[in-house]
Design a protein around this nucleic acid. Structure first.
Lengths: 275, 275
DNA sequence: AGGCAGCTTCCACTGGATGGAAGTTCCTGC
DNA sequence: GCAGGAACTTCCATCCAGTGGAAGCTGCCT
């Protein structure tokens, strides 16, 4: 290639991905230089690629000169897993209306729980998760539900990995976790107490689909009034059952848009980020 | 390039965009051949690029062999306009709780209204819009609000374009529309009656930000009980005012993530699609 | 008014992208 | 069970699109 030392073995595709990935962890707009650094690309290459991406609407320039993700990209991406989100949203809303607590729906994406939808009130509580965000499976209630009710290889593979200690309360001992998952299976729901972030607790139940785990729905509750969280169980289980009924006619693969095959993909270190 | 007749002048970037754009109008998974046709690329090129995109998580292969948008892409794209969506969501929810009618929030994207958020109940009504979807500005209540309260060049430029006749009720006469926009400005809200789709009507109000139009919020109502729609006005205006208060401290550019500059981009013919 | 950081443009070079063709798999109909 | 064919995958000689160092530009800060 150019002047002398291109970085061989990097396809254009991977460079474009690297540029988009620079926005994966931040809500801010980024400068060209920041993108260049994050994507590990020469400034001039970044400049040209970003230019093309802006041209096409994948990225956009904001008033202050920064670069952000474009509305076109967002609009295209809205088609991902739409079946599940469109179907589930009213039920997640109901859950919020009935409990008044932050309600969420998550699926497994590799070895993380991926938050698909989330309904919350105007009084903000400190939040560790967000729609599109990921958290470790062992630290959250939805994650524990996913580990407990997925095919056994999921938990087996997961518990081999190093388990991130997010707060002093996070259980990072594989043996203890395995026992806890057993209890989750018996009781039919999972809870956490300040295992992701101090001050918030959570509770979650599974949503099944043709005998397999489909997703998990749960509540995030300020620890201050989280005593007796299981008072929410009837509502949670009722919502789960109604959601199961609403999705039973849709093939699981259509719902999720993915096969969650045995490909536990590599950690990739997304820190919990912002509150 | 290869064997003989590449299509010169097409950057790799544009090819990747073309592949992603193939998913813009469909929720289905696509076969390689379909993508190849939609993106107007040779099959082998499509094969290689799709392979790379799947590798990186931008696309994913579903169980039946089809190809779909990947969760990674979705998760990255969630950062687009997050500030506005995160802030506004509870207010859109409130609007739904208080009215029981489908509630939505839209902004202008080129010469279309882009639906940013939407809250609806479990009883489905025929719907023409969806989150991430676009509709012509002149046929919807939110669109009319956008035209009426944006800088005057927006409506001026828009009314020069050919106006799509979506139903028998759609007003596609520029002169009539200009008068209607004047009335919208006087009354402070806009309505439609079956102008997008027979059977549904809508009403919308503007949400301002530092004196300029920020976005528009509105309701979609089955025409059967849309008589006296303006009974919803106090709730709509109250919600708008509360949303204005909640966003006033955030710079407009940060909110939208874009400058809606004088670049009225070309129609691009997205049909209303599915109900 | 000099310095500097960030952005944009330029351009000769070259290796990664290219796509036609051949090979493979997996149907479906007779 | 096998011919026909549609969809997908692999191969590889060709060559131009992508490349990135360097130089130029802009605007801000001191």
């Amino acid at each position: 290639m150019a002047g002398g030392s291109s970085q061989p073995g990097r396809s254009v595709t991977s460079k474009i991905l690297a540029i988009l990935a620079a926005f994966e962890t931040t809500r801010r707009s980024l400068s060209l230089t920041e993108i260049s650094a994050a994507a590990d690309l020469p400034l001039s290459t970044t400049h040209r690629l970003v230019g093309e991406l802006v041209e096409s609407g994948m990225l956009s320039r904001s008033a202050n000169g920064g670069i952000q993700l474009g509305l076109r990209l967002w609009a295209i991406a809205q088609n991902t897993g739409r079946q599940l989100r469109d179907t589930a949203r009213p039920y997640v809303q109901d859950l919020f209306s009935l409990t008044g607590e932050t309600s969420q729906l998550a699926i497994r994406d590799g070895n993380m729980s991926l938050y698909i939808d989330r309904v919350y009130g105007t009084k903000r509580i400190a939040r560790a998760s967000r729609v599109g965000g990921r958290l470790p499976l062992h630290a959250t209630a939805v994650g524990k539900v996913i580990l407990a009710f997925s095919e056994s290889w999921v938990a087996d593979a997961y518990l081999e990995l190093p388990l991130q200690q997010m707060t002093a309360h996070t259980r990072s001992n594989p043996k203890q976790l395995r026992e806890e998952l057993e209890r989750v299976r018996e009781k039919g729901y999972a809870t956490t107490n300040e295992e992701v972030r101090l001050g918030t607790s959570s509770i979650a139940v599974p949503v099944f689909h043709t005998g397999r785990l489909g997703c998990s729905i749960g509540l995030v509750i300020p620890t201050s009034h989280a005593a007796n969280m299981d008072r929410f169980l009837p509502v949670l289980q009722g919502t789960s059952r109604r959601l199961e009924a609403a999705t039973v006619h849709i093939p699981l693969e259509t719902l999720l848009g993915i096969v969650s095959g045995p490909d536990m993909n590599v950690p990739e270190e997304e820190s919990p980020e912002e509150g």
